[in-house]
Each structure stands twice: as C-alpha cells, then as structure tokens.
C-alpha cells in the first residue's frame, strides 16, 4: 500500500445556487519518498486538493489514508498531531504571524507538539541558516521582503521533521537563483531522508524536475 492513498475524493463548494466541483472524484496513490509536482490553471483545484491531503480541509466525499489510516476518522488531537508532525505545509500566501520573530515563527510547530526544548531552538536557528536567513533570526515579518518571508515559512515546514512536505507554489515570488537553491534543498532532503514531496507550481521547468508530474484540470487529475 502507498504511503498516501487518495480514494474517490471530491470537494464541492456551494456558493449561492452554484456548485463548484473544486476536486472531482480524484484517486491517487503516493509512495513514500516520491517527488511529485502538480501543475494546472489557476482555479483548477490544486490548493484545495493539497489542503485535503494536509488535513486542513475536509473533502465532501472520499477518503485520504495515511499509512493505511483514514485521516478523517481522527479526532481533533489526532488530526492536529498529523498536521503538526507528519506533514509540513507551505502555503501559497503569506503565513507568518506578525507578532513573532522569524525564529519564533519557525519554532511555532514545536510549541503545539511536545513543547520547545534547547535542541528545537537550535534546530530553528539552523533551518533559518539553511534557507539563507542566518542574519534575520530576530527580524519580524514586517522587516522582511516577500521572498524572505516565504523562506521563513519553508524553514517552518521543516521544523518538526515531517514525513511529507506539501508545498503550494513555494517558490512563487522567489528570484530564479533562490528558487533553484530551494529546489536543490528539497531534492536533497528527498534523497537523503526519504521525505515525500508534493508541490504545486506554475513553472513547467520546475515541474519537470519531479519524478512524477500531475496536471489538474477542473478538479480532475491526469498523470503526464
């Protein structure tokens, strides 16, 4: 069995009389350590699909199994644990808390896990160095550029050493050089630690660097 099993997942949004099938009866297996890219027009359902896998949105129907366990059967503590430990989510949009420094934002996931110890604090610092923000540890989000904020969010996704990274256009507003560096980092972690990567991108060149590529159209997926 695959690490992540997506079975007959649909998500329907109802806006007034209108029903939008953002995700339309999708089934897919993702193996541990797989490196998967998703492309598609805007509005095709990519963010919705990724969010369902990450347990931050419930599907209208269908199931997501992680290592055989249906994540929709988990209670609040179980599901929070899944989001906290198992997956690392990188949002398409700004997602840093303005009252926390870069370092504290990276540290945040451990606050909701087993609590932050000295090792966690060191790890958060190392992650910031890794994404090239060693000199911005105590900066607040408002003091960082959009690209820098995104890199902090990337570091945060790695904080609890997740088994799966879900990245929604992670390099969207990064310059090409940084984008390449981040991709190298992803590939390295994927190779060395067997972390599963699923990332959405607009950039077809980036998408092609993945082992497996998926195109999403009107909520339906097709392997390419």
């Amino acid at each position: 069995m695959a690490q992540i099993e997506i079975r007959d997942v649909s998500k329907i949004f109802t806006v007034g009389d209108l029903q939008i099938r953002a995700v339309d009866d999708v089934s897919l297996g993702i193996e541990k350590g797989e490196f998967l890219s998703i492309v598609g027009h805007s509005g095709s359902g990519k963010t919705t699909f990724l969010s369902i896998i990450g347990g931050i949105m419930k599907p209208t129907s269908g199931r997501v199994l992680f290592e055989g366990k249906d994540i929709s059967s988990l209670d609040d503590a179980g599901l929070s644990g899944y989001r906290n430990n198992t997956v690392g989510f990188m949002f398409q949009f700004a997602s840093l808390l303005p009252i926390l420094t870069a370092w504290e934002n990276v540290l945040l996931p451990c606050l909701f896990g087993s609590g932050c110890d000295v090792n966690d604090k060191k790890r958060a610092e190392e992650l910031l160095h890794l994404v090239g923000l060693g000199d911005k540890i105590n900066a607040y989000p408002s003091q960082l550029s959009g690209g820098q904020q995104r890199r902090v969010a990337i570091a945060r996704a790695f904080m609890n050493a997740p088994e799966v990274i879900l990245a929604d256009e992670p390099t969207g507003d990064l310059d090409e050089e940084t984008e390449a560096e981040i991709m190298e980092l992803f590939k390295k972690l994927n190779r060395e630690q067997n972390v599963t990567f699923i990332f959405i991108t607009h950039n077809l060149d980036l998408a092609r660097q993945a082992q497996k590529q998926i195109r999403m159209t009107h909520g339906v997926i097709k392997e390419i």
């Binding site: 990450g54 609040d76 929070s80 430990n85 989510f89 808390l97 996931p109 945060r156």
Partner: peptide, 15 residues
C-alpha cells in the same frame, strides 16, 4: 487567518 495558520501547523482547538 492567524488562527487558521497555527491550526494548519498543528495547534489543537484547546490551544
């Protein structure tokens, strides 16, 4: 949205 973010990275309802 901040609560959404912390919920997404593992904050429980009780947190």
């Amino acid at each position: 949205w901040e609560i959404g973010v912390i919920r997404a990275i593992g904050a429980r309802q009780s947190h």
